[in-house]
């Protein structure tokens, strides 16, 4: 299938991006920077085409569904939203440092999806319950939220590294940490991406509830995936209150953001692989 081939190219491109972003750490140069961004955008465009192809191919097979239905498609789509949000942040804040954290995550996700024997990459028909437009609204908003949280996680890690280096570093290291944006910008990115992610996650949980109500007559049934998305939401609500009402900044909020991202990972992967419930489609 064409989509699989394209996705192979995309995975390779993101791996190259990962190397390039690391190289950029040591060779900071305007031209090189433009080239990296160009390659990233090219990779993302091919990624978009590949997802579109896969969608089209599913229609040809007579199933006709958006590529969001199983673990393979989830990982691929989640990588797509993550690179999208990463690019937006790179343009908005003129910051390349986060690429060092984002592209390893994205490459691993893409490679794992294609290579792991636990994950089926065929286009499979949907069970009747998943046959709904709400699938698109629900999963897309959740994935965009997860991606925003991933960026905030990257920014938090960067913050902590830079924070430790800030006072006791040799000139060479100082130079390296000069590559990272100033602490205040990082702190702002952590907060901004969480604000975006929180709003999207709220919408994601609500569209999920509306859908559940349509499909099986109950908007909330405390199934593990639902409960974990609520836990994630509560952790980020704690982050928001810590920052807005208690005046926490910097290190402490960065740590909260990392805890939040751990909850995101568990909601997305842990629940499917370790617990069981209505959403356990991902384990197939």
């Amino acid at each position: 299938m064409i989509s699989s081939k394209l996705l192979g190219i995309v995975t390779l491109t993101y791996l190259i991006c990962m190397v390039l972003y690391f190289t950029y750490l040591f060779f900071r140069n305007q031209k090189f920077s433009t080239v990296i961004t160009g390659i990233t955008i090219a990779g993302w465009v091919v990624h978009t085409l590949a997802l579109g192809m896969r969608w089209y191919e599913s229609y040809q097979l007579g199933y006709g569904h958006i590529p969001l239905s199983n673990m393979y498609e989830s990982l691929i789509s989640l990588s797509w939203t993550t690179v999208l949000i990463y690019l937006i942040i790179e343009f908005r804040y003129k910051i390349k440092a986060l690429g060092i954290f984002i592209f390893p995550i994205v490459s691993i996700a893409m490679a794992y999806a294609s290579l792991s024997p636990n994950i089926q990459d065929e286009i499979a028909p949907l069970v009747p319950a998943l046959h709904s437009n709400w699938l698109t609204y629900h999963v897309m908003t959740c994935f965009l939220a997860y991606s925003a949280f991933a960026i905030s996680f990257g920014a938090s890690i960067t913050y902590l590294i830079k924070f430790r280096k800030a006072d006791k570093s040799t000139p060479a290291e100082k130079d390296l940490s000069g590559f990272f944006p100033p602490l205040e910008s990082l702190d702002e990115i952590v907060y901004k991406t969480i604000a975006i992610g929180f709003l999207l996650l709220s919408i994601g949980i609500i569209t999920g509830a509306v859908w559940a109500n349509y499909a099986w007559g109950s908007y909330w049934s405390w199934d593990p995936k639902e409960t974990w998305s609520l836990i994630t939401w509560l952790v980020y609500a704690a982050f928001i209150h810590a920052r807005l009402t208690r005046g926490w900044r910097g290190r402490r909020t960065a740590i909260l953001s990392i805890i939040g991202f751990a909850a995101v990972l568990f909601t997305f992967l842990g629940v499917n692989f370790l617990l069981s419930g209505l959403h356990s489609y991902g384990s197939s």
């Binding site: 409960t227 609520l230 836990i231 509560l234 952790v235 909850a263």
Partner: peptide, 24 residues
């Protein structure tokens, strides 16, 4: 007091977490 809010949010998360570790 708003001092209670963040502990409450965290307590609630932990309770939910327990609810997913013990099958219901």
């Amino acid at each position: 007091s708003i001092k209670l809010t963040i502990p409450l949010l965290i307590i609630l998360s932990i309770v939910c977490l327990i609810g997913t570790l013990i099958p219901q």
